[in-house]
Design a protein around this nucleic acid. Sequence first.
DNA 1: CTGAAAGCGCTAACAT
DNA 2: ATGTTAGCGCTTTCAG
Lengths: 363, 363
Amino acid sequence: MNEMKTEKNNTRAPGIKDVAREANVSISTVSHVLNGTKAVSEPLRKRVMEAVNELNYQVDPIGRSLKSGRSHSVAVLFPSITSVFFPPLLKSLQKSADQAGYSLTVHSTSGKLEKEKAQVQALTAQRIDGIFVSSCANSHDKKAQDYIQTLKGLHNNGHRIPVICLESALDSALDSVVVNDEQGSEQAVEHLIQLGRKNIAYIAAPQSYAMGRARTRGYVSALKKADIAFRKQYIAEGDYTPLSGYQCMQELLSRDISIDAVAAGNDQMAIGAMRALQEAGRKIPEDVAIFGYNDNFPASLVRPALSTIHVPKEEMGTFAFDLFLRRLRNTDATPSKIQLTGEMILRGSTDPGIETDWILESW
Amino acid sequence: MNEMKTEKNNTRAPGIKDVAREANVSISTVSHVLNGTKAVSEPLRKRVMEAVNELNYQVDPIGRSLKSGRSHSVAVLFPSITSVFFPPLLKSLQKSADQAGYSLTVHSTSGKLEKEKAQVQALTAQRIDGIFVSSCANSHDKKAQDYIQTLKGLHNNGHRIPVICLESALDSALDSVVVNDEQGSEQAVEHLIQLGRKNIAYIAAPQSYAMGRARTRGYVSALKKADIAFRKQYIAEGDYTPLSGYQCMQELLSRDISIDAVAAGNDQMAIGAMRALQEAGRKIPEDVAIFGYNDNFPASLVRPALSTIHVPKEEMGTFAFDLFLRRLRNTDATPSKIQLTGEMILRGSTDPGIETDWILESW
DNA sequence: CTGAAAGCGCTAACAT
DNA sequence: ATGTTAGCGCTTTCAG
């Protein structure tokens, strides 16, 4: 049964020196043709490539990394592995990475700063070439400052590791691609106002984060523009999850106020709120109109379908990767903050006439 | 502006020799206390640990991998980054990996065998310690045989790399954790029959894969047990996506047959089918009852909520990681095929009386 | 129980 | 244009 103990597979993977021997050149020549690091005469180059194919040689990324400090791979860090927001973003990052010849690994921080820090440290040690991060750090928090400084100075073998912020810009010295949260939120609430709603509640995303605050600002400013008084008891704060939206809505309904519309900081909370409204016997949108944010696919599944602000997740990925490539070329480029604008998508949760579209992408 | 060109951060990360110098011992001693590879006297051990803390030393995983052939990390490969099936599974794998001190990277194969092969090769080169794969290889396909053989013989530095199959067992020589697809599917169809439905259509998952075939077998066998004739025109084959379910249902409706129930190979296709039925003016479940498979969260969102077979994704992850750890300890253990059984979840798409539950997990 | 030394596979000065 | 060689940071025989 164990007679195959010799199955340590005597055929070790060929190394660069095997190629060198086979092609009858020096290993540095092989390295140079492989990496295009230096000019090599055509005949030699050809011999080397033949040997490479002959032996089916693949460069060992570990050996390479040890020496070069690079890994040809980039990483994405995001808070929740179960969130429907990230897959479309990941998909486009993946696509860009593939095209550029980078491999892409994805890592969940579980929304914990400690874990995020640890991941960054581990990735750095692995000679990662770039990091895309939807950080769970709150840039207003003193305790996050050290971490943000670290991010700005990440380096390997004396070269910087580009860090690209997704969704929120941690620091003006870091490249980032974000969406115009305040404007999108304002637009949503303005639409509710145009529908004639005056008692508009708001289920906010966590206010400890810039994104949550920005979206809330949009709500406030839309009210102000319409000369509607801001009333504190019309606001509840959730934690992004549908359950929290459900609970916030119950809480709002239990207050002694009348509500004819609700805007939420994301689709998940809006959908949770819809459930609470329906349980309370409120007709959507007749009694209460409701607006989400992000346009994740469930928004098109629920009945009525959820009006929301479409966040261009695919574009975020594409832009983010371009920023990375740019920084690779020019370490000293001034940091870019690419701000994408969301698009208002109207569906049945606000406008009864509108026929419900159907998000065809695979999920 | 560039006066900080010297910012290649003169403080290189401390290496093992820095620790050795600081502790006044040899580097091999440091290595041994760090890895517990050999007994080291208490005083020395202590001096080493102090130096480690003093310098805030972290072992370099690349240096370590180069020599040891291990990386303390495992990888998950799955076909679709946008599928709602995987996040819960990933989450539990992540949890197990964290507990065991392994880092976990996730990689999408986009459902392409070529890409899957390439990923496996790249991971092997990176000294990955284990691979969890929901493969897109069809074990009945001649062309996949080579790949499956490769998987069975994956190795690094003379030690095997455990491969754990998820969802489908690629080969009896590989550890795997799967669900009893045939039985679950049979149970679902039996329920439809008990409801008095006789004209039950089936929207199959791809028949080129074992999973799709198994689920279809369950449908066929439930009909047989109930003495209902199997009729070919009651079957359509989708590709997992909601859109394909939608199209299959349209196709079925266009055939000259009467349908009072539909079972589908997964929830996505079932939900697509629901949309087609609703557009065709069929009442669910009164006119047509419908059954899904997997119990992904959207099943609880749609109206009516979708009856389905709950696949224990969290358990899959836990079992899978345990299999990995076991094989690490004993390379020669006989391969395990852990077969979990799905649980039938009845909702409004089949049973009008049942109140719709609400999947609270975060998405 | 401890340490010296030989590489792991590769890149990049530095020679030639 | 090509080759020689010194490591990258670590693990692991092999001596002492």
